[in-house]
Design a protein around this nucleic acid. Structure first.
Lengths: 210, 210, 210, 210
DNA sequence: ACTTAAGCGAGACGGTACGTCTTGTCTTACG
DNA sequence: CGTAAGACAAGACGTACCGTCTCGCTTAAGT
């Protein structure tokens, strides 16, 4: 349930304050900037290195390729202190959550969209994105537990399917179908998930969550 | 209601029977074969041309780049005779639909996954994929209309949000989170969509569908 | 005897006047200029390409590597109309020949020295240099034949050992030992070769020349 | 008369007994082994250091670059106890000498050839090779002095031109022309040098030898 | 024996060149 | 007119060495 951010090598970094750490920061900043400004297919090692004021070979030595850069960006993005909203009701929490998702997917510049798109260019980046999402959904489980405690949804309601049911429609339209966000979709998805949960759609048939 | 497949250039094909048509077929077949065998990032113009037994310049002249090839493949994939299942109940239809989705996303070789992933590399391919999905969801609307007619869901239930609510979780896990399909997720998503719809979650608050 | 200049691919060049021929000339000129100005170990594909105003990949496509460039330079150097001196006596011919050798090895800039040195960096260039020398020694054989006809040396005197005996000391000191030319060495080597030849040192023990 | 081996830095080594001396031996052994096994163009500082079980920076600190390594190898190769043959006749001595040269140039693995070739890649190595050859030719001068004493060649016969005349053809063919050794060439060159010397070709016209 | 400073191991870095791959443009010739 | 053939510019790729640097640690040398 705990997230495992920065799982890649961060435990062996000897002096995060020295040159090594400074260069890492410069490079990852450059990755994010390039991603946001020129999109994921303009993200080349050469460009990143130039922008970071670092030599190409340094990037290759430490990150191996674009996938490694992206994975590191994903991993550093994970080690924050994000907590899910706690509004006092399941619907309120999910509405707030979807607002966050919507904001992230439609922000300008489109940093989140760029990261998601970029994850399709590299198996390593895809795994890192998976770790990031796993972390986020794990942190959201208290939302469901609180709803169970409040009696809003039946005991035994499984957190993950409920959360995905509430958020997936947004991702589906914005990321996969690439169509502009229909106004009200965020709220609609949250409400329908709550309704389905209340009706017991997500009570565990068998024990064991994924 | 049907989408407009083969919108790219197919309407201006002058002589579909001759050399032109034969070459187009060879090239698109080569694209599909390469996509399926070696994945989307091994899809280069050179490879496709070589496999199609056609010169590089011919591909550039007609399709301009890989995005154009993919767009053409998407469009030709759209002009089929696919119809949504009709099992007699909304739940049955959605279960069958999700089974199809699951099958498409987990088939070996992963043709559908490759196409989706490829769409992130080309704006043109992304638009073509959007057209394809628009077409599919449009064809699925009768499923909801029949459910309304049968009284399974309230009058005024909007088709698109319901359909997306039923299918999005599958795409979310398999395409975006890149985790193996949790068994039962397809059925779970279908059931929860039906429950939410029965409870009136998708009745139109305002007129105007997307 | 017949030399085989430009043995590499020259027979398939379709239009020596067009872009292909122009680029070849630019590149080979750049090779010679770089060799002469900065020496053989500054001779990189990148430098040559830049100097020739041609893209790196063009050089790699046509010449493969530095060795290929050098080999082409050697081969084009061979297709001239050089003829050995004909002074009327063997000693006069060999003296003139050695003067030429000395001039070539001590010229400024040291083009010949640079080519010889460069041949040690590439098997292909070494072979090309071998072809060049073979060509030159073959062309010099008439010098010995004329001396035989004049009765200066015994019938059956082999040309190659005599020629090498006359010229090798110069190369040995200047190229291998890398010491400045001792004045008179050129003449000394020519004279001693003539003396040895007159004494029958190079008469063929067995028929068959190399 | 002996050359000045180990001229590079060896005079300032403060502690030749301990780790320093051991490392020097390991590194030079590694240079020779690499040269012999993989040739001069595979001779990199990294490879040598790895083979010697020593860190890269150690090699750079002590020898600066590959040229320094080669120069040190050449210099250590010079301080041996080599003496020219003494067969009782000039021809015998020169024949034996050329047999040695031929053996050195055709030995497998081609250590001598590798050293000569390597000398073209480094000015420092070239100078070291020059010192080595100077040393060898100086040691050979007694051969000629003995011949003069025996009356085989005229008084005043200069040693160096005679020696070079006898050995240069071998080097010329094997090192420069890179063609296989013509059988009998070694003997032919020795014989012709003796004949020329007997005829007085190498008697000093002016005093002052090189 | 104790210090002390030279030498070494370790490893990152900037840098040059390598040789390959793909893209997209062009030109010429062929059918 | 569309295609085949093929050269070219452009630029990213990932690798190999080079030579430099800094930081600790070891160890031989001189007191």
């Amino acid at each position: 349930m705990a997230s495992s951010p920065r799982a890649t090598g961060s435990s062996v970094v000897p002096r995060p304050g020295g040159r090594t750490g400074r260069i890492r920061r410069q490079v990852l900043d450059a990755v994010r900037a390039e991603l946001v400004e020129h999109g994921y297919d303009a993200l080349t090692v050469d460009t990143v290195a130039a922008r970071a004021g670092v030599h190409r070979t340094t990037v290759y030595r430490r990150w191996r390729d674009v996938g490694g850069l992206l994975a590191d960006v994903f991993d550093t993005a994970g080690d924050d202190t994000w907590r899910p909203p706690d509004t006092g009701s399941l619907l309120g929490d999910l509405l707030a959550l979807n607002d966050e998702v919507l904001a992230a997917l439609t922000e300008r510049p489109p940093a989140t969209m760029a990261l998601i798109a970029a994850s399709f260019r590299s198996e390593e980046a895809a795994r890192a994105l998976g770790r990031f999402w796993e972390d986020r959904y794990a942190r959201c489980e208290p939302v469901v537990r609180r709803a169970v405690a409040r009696g809003e949804v039946p005991a035994g309601t499984r957190a993950r399917p409920l959360l995905i049911s509430a958020t997936a429609p947004l991702y589906h339209r914005l990321v996969l179908m690439r169509v502009p966000a229909e106004p009200g979709l965020a709220a609609l998805a949250a409400r329908s998930a709550v309704l389905a949960a209340s009706a017991g759609a997500f009570t565990a048939p068998e024990p064991g969550d994924t």
